[in-house]
Amino acid sequence: MRKVLFLCIKNSSRSQMAESILNSKAGDKFQAYSAGSRPADKINPYAVKVMEEVNVDISNKTPQSAEKYLDMKFDFVITLCDKMKEECPNFPGNPIVAHWGMPDADEIQGNEEEKLKEFRKTRNEILKRIEFFINLPMEKLDRISMENMTKEIGSQK
């Protein structure tokens, strides 16, 4: 089973969604984790709500510090925000590191429906990227090809 760590600064929405989506869609092939360099106090309630819409419960999750995982070996480390890309710590075992940057829906100003719309957009983008990721023919790829294809997922629109 391949281990994947998703990183964002606050670990309150994007990385939590990515972890939970990967675990729910391909938990037999991957074990996903998430963390942040400056974790928030709690999961963003909008993230919880939009994940409920796709039958994934993240309400009991808590933001984690990336420091918790500094001694753990991962096959993939994927950053989801530009700040985290710049601050990404080194992990043992030479994991494939990729950046799947996307805007922080939490920074959207507006009413509840406008915020939910942005969180849905983020969730859907993560869902799409995870679908690409879990469908990579990893057992047939060499490391360089796997790394390039994983990075390419973050640049697709």
Rank of each mutant, 00 (worst) to 15 (best):
V97Q: 13
T122Q: 09
E118I: 07
N94S: 14
K115G: 04
E125M: 13
R123E: 00
L116F: 06
D104K: 05
M102H: 08
F119K: 04
Q109D: 00
I96F: 04
E112N: 11
T122Y: 04
A105K: 02
N94A: 12
G101K: 07
K121F: 13
I96A: 04
M102V: 06
P95Q: 07
K117E: 15
E131V: 10
E87Y: 15
G101M: 02
E87W: 15
C88R: 15
I96T: 11
Q109M: 00
P89H: 08
I130K: 02
R120T: 03
W100R: 01
N90F: 15
A98Q: 10
E114H: 08
D104G: 07
Q109K: 00
F132G: 00
F119I: 07
R120A: 01
D106R: 15
F91A: 03
L127A: 10
A98N: 08
F132V: 00
I126H: 05
L127F: 13
L116T: 07
L116E: 09
G93V: 07
P95V: 05
V97E: 14
V97G: 10
L127S: 11
E131C: 01
E118H: 14
F119C: 03
N111P: 06
K128M: 13
K117M: 13
D104Y: 08
W100N: 03
E107P: 00
R120S: 00
I108N: 11
D104I: 03
E114V: 07
M102Y: 10
N90P: 11
I108T: 15
D104C: 06
L116V: 09
E114R: 09
E107F: 11
E118S: 13
L127G: 03
I126K: 03
E107T: 13
N124G: 02
C88E: 15
A105D: 01
R120K: 10
E87T: 14
P103F: 05
G101Y: 09
F119V: 05
G110K: 02
G93L: 03
E113S: 11
L116I: 12
E131D: 14
N124D: 15
E125K: 14
M102C: 05
R120M: 03
E107Y: 10
E118V: 09
F119R: 01
K128I: 11
D106T: 15
I130H: 02
F119S: 02
F119D: 03
E112P: 00
W100P: 04
D104S: 08
W100M: 01
G93P: 05
E118T: 11
F132W: 07
C88I: 12
G93Q: 09
I108L: 12
R123K: 07
C88H: 13
E107A: 12
I126P: 05
N90C: 13
K128Y: 13
P95N: 07
Q109S: 00
M102T: 06
D104P: 02
W100Y: 04
N111D: 14
K115D: 05
P89M: 02
N111S: 09
R129K: 12
K115H: 05
G101R: 06
E113A: 10
T122E: 11
D106Y: 15
G110Y: 05
